[in-house]
């Protein structure tokens, strides 16, 4: 428990330092805020355009316009939380290995993975977080059916699971740069894989779709990360089947499993670390 309290206070220091740093270059911060949300608004424009032509995404899937926007908002919340806390750090980690500054992280009396995962907080991603929250609020208010407090708590818990899944994937990839020396394209690879979670999992159908859906649900569970919370919130096909409980349960299971795998890969990778340039 004391370890946890100390980790929390270290994290708060990191967050404060990052905020001070961001506020030193205030204009730059504003530009980052605006440009990253410009990207999001462009995507939303594309979605609006799609619903200009169709009432829903896929026959009988229940993803109508507002259900889908709740889904997109959820995806945005999860992605912006990941980029706020972990993306820069994942990127930086490769650089630490290449330049050898990881030595300093290893020497500190705190869990190394914790330290390298959270040392920078990207405050400008908070803009997209707000956009995501507004999107979810607007979308759910347009849908019939009240949302109970239990559902909200579950939703938040599942969003957290989603962040854990994306984080684990990111740092599993980042850790491989210990073996590869440099790994710029693997981070791109992470982006490309996460892009599979941009749309509801029901779209992956047919001969090719089924294996994709299976792979991204059970092996690399990025589909679980966004689909479970979004479904919990808007329940596109409510009275649900008994098997849906298994689906709901898959989020915490997938989060725990991916985190365990990520810890394992990270520890293995650290053991192979040979300090560079000293």
């Amino acid at each position: 428990m004391r370890g946890f309290a100390r980790a929390w206070s270290v994290f708060l220091t990191f967050a404060r330092n990052s905020l001070i740093r961001d506020m030193t270059f205030r204009a730059n911060f504003l530009i980052e805020l605006v440009s990253s949300s410009a990207w999001v608004f462009m995507n939303l424009g594309f979605y609006l355009l799609i619903f200009h032509y169709t009432p829903s995404i896929g026959v009988g899937t229940g993803w109508g316009k507002w259900e889908f926007f709740a889904f997109a908002g959820t995806g945005l919340i999860i992605n912006s939380l990941t980029s706020m806390f972990f993306m820069t750090n994942g990127d930086e980690f490769g650089e630490m290995i290449r330049t050898g500054t990881l030595d300093f992280a290893l020497l500190k009396p705190i869990d190394t993975q914790f330290l390298v995962s959270l040392q920078r907080v990207e405050w400008s991603s908070a803009g997209n977080l707000v956009v995501g929250i507004v999107l979810v609020l607007v979308a759910t208010s347009r849908l019939a059916g009240a949302i109970g407090p239990g559902q909200v708590i579950l939703y938040l818990a599942f969003v957290l699971c989603g962040v854990v899944i994306l984080y684990s994937l990111l740092f599993s990839f980042a850790a491989t740069s210990i073996w590869l020396g440099r790994n710029t394209s693997l981070l791109d690879f992470w982006f490309y894989i996460v892009s599979f979670s941009r749309y509801p999992m029901e779209i992956y159908q047919g001969r090719l779709g089924r294996p994709i859906r299976w792979f991204f649900s059970f092996v690399v569970p990025v589909l679980v990360a966004v689909n479970v919370p979004a479904r919990e919130l808007v329940r596109p096909l409510y009275p649900r089947l008994a098997s849906d409980w298994l689906f709901t349960l898959s989020a915490p299971v997938a989060a725990a499993a991916s985190f365990a795998v990520c810890r394992w890969i990270f520890a293995r990778a650290l053991r192979s670390y040979r300090s560079a340039s000293s």
Partner: peptide, 22 residues
Amino acid sequence: MRFLPIVTQIFLWAAVFSEIEA
């Protein structure tokens, strides 16, 4: 790798077109 995002796009459109057809 740059072809990967196209895969999701293809599936999205397949779903959209199936809905419009229905």
